[in-house]
Computed example of a mutant assay.
Amino acid sequence: MANKDPKAHDASTPNLTTPTDLGAEARNAVSAGLTNLLADVFALFVKTKNFHWHVSGPHFRDYHLLLDDQAALVFAMVDPVAERARKLGGTTLRSVGQIASLKRLSDNDAAFVAPEAMLDELRQDNESLVKFMRELHQLCDEKEDVATASLIENWIDQTEERVWFLFETTRHTR
């Protein structure tokens, strides 16, 4: 038996389909969008923890704690995003490789990143995440998936709060 493409999203797996009044096309589209969002959330979590572990300098304690708090908030999105895709009868991420193939946020593997550059990069990534969520919200509106749209609205608010904190923390350096 040949392996399926790990990037392929198949919400029509009969043993995993759950009851919903949304049509198959809506379920497939929204759950695929949620899986892409989940890959971005994982990527943002790992980058935030990377910067948390590697921050240095005179504001070390403040930045270290801020990034730990932000990583926890990002990680708190993981299960609700994945479970919403499953509630729709879709499938979701199965591997780190699939995360890497679906994520839209870039990695940062640099040996050293200045603390203010870390915070600015995370601010930009969170802003991108808001953009991705607004696009998915638009899809939910088109497919009449008010439950997913409602969750996304809360995630947008939480992400905008992270943007605000990152912006205010580095305001003096601009």
Score class of each variant (00 low, 15 high):
24 A>S: 10
24 A>I: 00
26 A>H: 03
26 A>P: 10
29 A>S: 08
31 S>P: 02
32 A>M: 06
32 A>V: 02
32 A>G: 07
32 A>N: 01
32 A>Q: 07
34 L>S: 05
34 L>A: 11
37 L>C: 09
37 L>I: 00
38 L>Y: 00
39 A>R: 02
40 D>Y: 12
41 V>A: 10
43 A>I: 11
43 A>G: 15
45 F>K: 10
47 K>A: 00
47 K>N: 03
48 T>M: 12
49 K>T: 11
50 N>E: 09
51 F>T: 02
52 H>L: 05
54 H>E: 08
55 V>T: 14
56 S>F: 04
57 G>A: 11
61 R>Y: 15
66 L>V: 03
69 D>K: 10
70 Q>T: 00
72 A>Q: 10
74 V>C: 14
75 F>M: 07
76 A>F: 09
78 V>R: 02
81 V>W: 08
82 A>E: 02
82 A>S: 05
89 G>L: 05
89 G>P: 03
90 G>R: 00
92 T>Q: 03
92 T>C: 02
92 T>I: 05
97 G>W: 01
97 G>N: 08
98 Q>H: 05
100 A>M: 14
102 L>S: 07
104 R>F: 09
104 R>D: 06
105 L>E: 08
107 D>S: 06
108 N>D: 15
110 A>F: 04
113 V>Q: 11
113 V>K: 09
114 A>V: 04
115 P>H: 08
115 P>V: 02
117 A>Y: 00
118 M>R: 01
118 M>N: 04
120 D>Q: 00
121 E>D: 14
122 L>V: 01
122 L>R: 04
124 Q>R: 15
125 D>C: 13
127 E>M: 09
128 S>P: 14
129 L>A: 03
132 F>M: 14
132 F>Y: 04
134 R>T: 15
134 R>C: 14
134 R>E: 15
137 H>W: 13
137 H>L: 15
142 E>W: 08
143 K>R: 15
145 D>K: 03
148 T>W: 07
148 T>A: 09
150 S>I: 06
